[in-house]
């Protein structure tokens, strides 16, 4: 949950990118990292396997500017999407303020998307969170590929509650910042309601 530091006049918020293996979570963070002004970002840390699959998490700290005299600092994390890393995914969700669900738009990943979303709900509820009460957005990624499902179809399966959703091509950056801004706005709006507690 957010950490309000009156001394440093900072507000820290944690955003987690979730989704099935290879859907493009790490690619989202890499693009954000590449396109962010050096003064507004820290190092991108990736704990990955030799084949560049996320093993534990990616981490990118961002300074989004000032709000009411407080520095708004966001810490972006990705989880490892591969099914057998579930224990790690649970750990990364601790203290989350906002979630981005990255879906892989390819037809053959439909099942994997659904499973991952269910897994997200389960892991959140184990920690006393409810997805529907959290700042939450969806990205339909890999729209550049030929074998993708219609957005309407994906929306019906993965976004029945109609949270903000975006089409993405994370590799070239399409939709990446729109997604980030949308979740950051929801997180800040939530803060207004009472500190995210």
């Amino acid at each position: 949950m957010s950490f309000i530091n009156y001394m440093a006049r900072e507000i820290n918020c944690k955003i987690v990118y979730y989704g099935p293996g290879l859907c493009g979570k790490t690619t989202n963070l890499q693009y954000i990292y590449e396109r962010t002004n050096p003064s507004a970002k820290g190092k991108l840390i990736s704990l990955a396997t030799e084949t560049e699959r996320t093993l534990f998490f990616d981490f990118l700290p961002l300074n989004l500017g000032e709000i009411r005299g407080f520095k708004a600092r966001f810490q972006l994390y990705t989880v490892p999407g591969q099914v057998f890393y579930d224990a790690s995914r649970k750990l990364i969700l601790k203290g989350v303020d906002g979630v981005v669900f990255v879906a892989d738009s390819q037809y053959e990943r439909t099942e994997a998307n659904i499973e991952s979303l269910e897994n997200l709900r389960t892991n959140l509820s184990e920690q006393g969170y409810q997805l529907d009460k959290l700042p939450y957005v969806v990205q339909y990624n890999k729209r550049d590929l030929p074998n993708v499902a219609d957005v309407a179809e994906l929306r019906e399966l993965l976004n029945p509650t109609n949270v903000p959703d975006f089409e993405g091509v994370a590799r070239t950056g399409v939709g990446v910042f729109d997604t980030l801004k949308a979740v950051a706005k929801l997180v800040l709006t939530e803060l207004r309601k009472g500190g995210g507690a």
Partner: peptide, 12 residues
């Protein structure tokens, strides 16, 4: 399991 409490830091 209960969620952790909001973290706040004051000057004192």
């Amino acid at each position: 399991m209960a969620r952790d409490q909001q973290m706040v830091m004051y000057e004192e």
